[in-house]
Write a protein that binds this DNA or RNA. Structure first.
Lengths: 220, 220
DNA sequence: AAATTAATTAACCGACCGGTTAGTTAGGAA
DNA sequence: TTCCTAACTAACCGGTCGGTTAATTAATTT
């Protein structure tokens, strides 16, 4: 278990290392209960250091929360910068973006719940423009480009972008509710199931935005 | 405001009426913070009766929570029973189901957040088979029928059903995060915006499952 | 090796929160 | 009218939780 590993490490007297350990544990706890429901004791318990260290290093619970959000948005920004979305047609661009996004979701499955809590509990108080810029804006840009080029249907770019991200993350926020749709004992967070979801979602998104006429004219 | 209206009503000595008032206030509070984060004081404050009445009528916070979930699943079941999904082709059936579902979401926008919290905070502990039966099973049935009849692509029915519901509810759980995608001051929960989301979502879902070949053969 | 400082701990505090309890009040039955 | 009981209130209780404080320990500098 991650918990055990984290706790077994010796509490080294290294500020940055300790901060990261706290943020790792905090990510789990915030994903479980959001800023409001997270217990600082619970975070500390998976850290190997005392609860007081949270306040020493981050000021208060909110400070730690901000730090966790910042770290995850930075991570996604880095991943985004590695993808070239400009020099390919909109269909390919959308596919590339989705692959990048789903890889991030697969590697950091705790992030979607945290952002959901952020919206529902905190009314998006800590959700900055930066977060929008690294998730929704690229999708909207691609969609607009695709409509103009005729590759995509005449859709509402903003509403569609929200729905696209919704498809990508809903599985990661709701798997506990939908477990029973699969045979008992199926682990919805196994690599195989995550990959199946990724494949299915990319197919679905592409199909949902394509312009049928454009396909016909292409095959003719 | 709903709050003011609820509170101004005289605290009648009617058990059922009081229970309903408590459940109304509880729905708001559970939608804000989930079972874990909900404050019984906050619920009582919007009720016109004392906090003690919650425990008198529902035993404990969890009892009230169960009651709220039950009420909303009953409501959806009733709406579902009024729709005929059998005697029409899969495309029409899916459209009808989505319209019904989105009407329910529009009228009870607090329900999606509650079920999201249920998954994330409580790991679906209170999410019964009944809930699955009134949300996912109908979609899966329609999808399977559509694949067999050739109307739909060869898709994964379960994964797709989850994504479909995801599209329907994500807007209602994330609007606080995505506000900035629209002009400042836009109320994402206005009737007009909700209807726009509904239209866009239904179009998108249908497009995402249709079998391209079936369309071509139809138009030929 | 002494002094300095950053990292860490254990114990503690006040506010809050779920739940209880003892007593009150309205209203229907006898 | 009296009685009974279901609905309701005000005050309270014990535990939990975010945050503080004073003292301790490990590195780093001089």
């Amino acid at each position: 278990m991650t918990t055990a590993i984290r706790k077994s490490n010796p509490p080294s007297r290294d500020s940055d290392a300790t901060k990261n350990r706290i943020m790792d544990a905090a990510e789990d706890e915030f994903a479980r209960a959001g800023l409001l429901g997270a217990r600082t004791e619970a975070i500390a318990a998976n850290t190997g250091v005392t609860k007081a260290m949270i306040f020493y290093h981050f000021g208060d619970k909110e400070g730690l929360y901000r730090a966790v959000l910042d770290r995850s948005v930075t991570k996604r920004l880095l991943a985004l910068q590695k993808v070239d979305l400009q020099s390919v047609d909109p269909v390919e661009a959308l596919g590339r973006y989705l692959k990048m996004f789903m890889r991030h979701a697969k590697d950091s499955p705790k992030v979607p719940p945290i952002f959901l809590f952020e919206s529902m509990q905190n009314k998006g108080r800590f959700y900055t423009d930066m977060f929008v810029a690294v998730t929704y804006t690229p999708v909207i840009d691609i969609l607009k480009r695709g409509i103009e080029s005729g590759h995509f249907r005449k859709l509402d770019p903003e509403q569609t972008a929200v729905n696209v991200i919704g498809m990508c993350v809903f599985y990661y926020t709701s798997y506990n509710n939908v477990r029973s749709l699969w045979p008992a004992g199926t682990d919805l967070m196994s690599d195989e199931m995550k990959e199946r979801h990724t494949r299915e979602t990319i197919d679905m998104v592409i199909a949902s935005v394509l312009n049928p006429e454009h396909i016909v004219s292409k095959s003719a």
